[in-house]
Measured scan of single mutants.
Amino acid sequence: EPELVFKVRVRTKDGRELEIEVSAEDLEKLLEALPDIEEVEIEEVEP
């Protein structure tokens, strides 16, 4: 069974934007590691 992958769009407080694809596990780590995120948009990517 393929692992869930999420497309994550992040905007930081200083206005930088970042778009990455991460696994569910990595997404959890990412959110814990970035306390200064202003906006996060997450969508599931079809395998």
Score class of each variant (00 low, 15 high):
R9E: 00
E46M: 12
K29Q: 06
V22H: 00
L4H: 08
D14R: 04
E1L: 12
D26A: 08
L27Y: 04
V22F: 03
L18Y: 15
E28L: 13
L4G: 04
R11A: 02
L27K: 01
I42E: 02
V40F: 12
V5W: 13
V40I: 13
A24V: 07
A33S: 14
R11G: 00
I20K: 02
L31W: 08
E28H: 12
V8P: 00
L27P: 00
V5C: 13
E46Q: 13
E44R: 13
R9A: 00
P35G: 15
L34H: 06
V8M: 03
L30C: 06
A33F: 11
E1V: 12
K29P: 02
E19I: 15
L31E: 01
D14C: 06
L4D: 02
D36A: 05
E1H: 12
K29V: 04
G15N: 03
V8K: 01
V45C: 08
E38K: 05
P2M: 07
V10A: 03
E1K: 14
E21K: 09
R11T: 06
A24N: 04
V40T: 03
E39P: 03
D26I: 05
E3M: 11
R11N: 01
E38D: 10
E25Y: 15
S23L: 07
L30P: 00
E38W: 14
L18C: 13
K13G: 04
V22N: 00
R16P: 01
V8T: 01
E17T: 15
E38M: 12
L18N: 01
R9K: 06
L31V: 03
E39G: 09
E25N: 11
R9T: 03
K29Y: 06
E21Y: 15
E32S: 12
L34C: 11
E44Y: 11
E19S: 10
P47D: 07
T12N: 03
K7S: 01
E43K: 10
L27R: 01
D36V: 03
E28V: 12
R9Y: 03
E43S: 11
D14M: 06
E32D: 08
R11F: 05
D14L: 05
E1C: 14
E3I: 10
E32L: 14
A33M: 13
D14T: 05
D26G: 09
V10W: 15
L18H: 05
L18A: 03
R16M: 07
I20E: 01
E43P: 03
E19D: 05
T12C: 08
P47M: 11
S23Y: 08
R16G: 04
V22I: 08
K7I: 09
P47F: 10
F6L: 08
L30K: 01
I37F: 12
D26Q: 11
V5D: 01
A33N: 11
P35E: 14
E21D: 05
G15M: 02
V8Y: 03
